[in-house]
Amino acid sequence: MTAGIVDLTELQRDAFTELVNIGVSKAAASLRKMIGVQVLLSVPAVEIVSQAQAARMIGEREASELVVVQQDFTGAFAGRALLIFPEENGRELVRAVAGEELSAEEVAELEDEALTETGNVILNGCLATMANLLQRTLSMSLPEVRRGDGPRIFQSAGDDSADALVLFLYINFSVRERDIRGYIAMLMDLPALESLKVLIDGFIERAIGETEP
């Protein structure tokens, strides 16, 4: 199976990128309420790749271990959402969220809790907003924190997901004047991606209908 089977048209890709951008903006607003400072997130591009390609893309960019917050989602389309940081960026995010004055030991103690809470806000906010714009609802599992390199993260995503494709997003965070880079990945099988494409087409039709006189 290759990603080419579910290639998005340019219009579908633009529409999906817009959905993601709105979702991430909503998540940033929720994060800002949680920590009380401005949070900027940007999503420059969306790609559909295989799990092996996603692992390779992260491996080419990140030499360090990765920390991941993951949540399963079910509903009109289903899959697993991953919020991925290089380990040091994860610690920076903890300091930004929990406070500048923390010692290294305190950061280590709070890391999983802060990452879980942050990941839950970002992934839930992003996916719930996207589902709402697609006029559907999603249910989200509780977040889990995992660590490992790219191949381990994607290969251990579930025994039944060897053929899953990955909607891969590179994101930039700016929190408390810290630049924190990360990734959002959505692992979905072919039927789920086809369902998502149908929903995106409906979103495009509604958008076009609203702009016509």
Rank of each mutant, 00 (worst) to 15 (best):
F77L: 11
N132P: 06
V69I: 14
V49S: 02
E87A: 09
E87C: 03
Q135L: 12
N120I: 07
D7M: 12
L138C: 04
A3K: 12
E117D: 11
N132R: 10
S64G: 09
S25T: 10
Q53E: 14
I48C: 08
R91D: 12
A78W: 00
E87D: 13
E117T: 12
R32S: 15
L134Y: 05
L127T: 09
E92V: 05
G79P: 09
T129F: 06
Q53I: 11
E18S: 06
L123F: 06
A104P: 10
E100D: 08
D7N: 15
A104N: 06
E111D: 07
R32E: 14
A55T: 08
L133T: 02
A76G: 02
R136A: 12
M140Y: 03
L110N: 05
E117W: 10
E18L: 00
N89M: 13
V107L: 07
Q71M: 15
I35E: 09
A128S: 15
E113R: 15
G59Q: 03
M34G: 03
Q71Y: 01
V43Y: 06
A78V: 01
L19F: 05
D14E: 10
V20W: 06
A131Q: 00
E106N: 10
E109T: 04
V39N: 08
V24L: 14
D72C: 04
A131G: 00
F73P: 04
M130T: 00
A27M: 08
A45M: 10
V107R: 07
L115R: 06
Q135Y: 02
V39A: 10
R13I: 03
Q71A: 10
A29K: 13
E117I: 12
Q53A: 13
T9A: 03
A76V: 01
L133W: 00
M130V: 07
E87V: 09
S103F: 05
F85A: 11
M34Q: 15
A28E: 05
A63R: 14
S139N: 13
V37D: 14
L138V: 07
A81S: 14
T74Q: 08
R13Y: 03
D14W: 00
S25E: 08
L110K: 11
V67H: 02
D14T: 11
V121P: 15
G79I: 04
R136Q: 13
A104S: 11
I48V: 15
L83W: 13
L110P: 08
E60K: 12
R91S: 06
I5C: 11
P44C: 00
R136D: 12
A81Q: 13
S64V: 01
A96H: 12
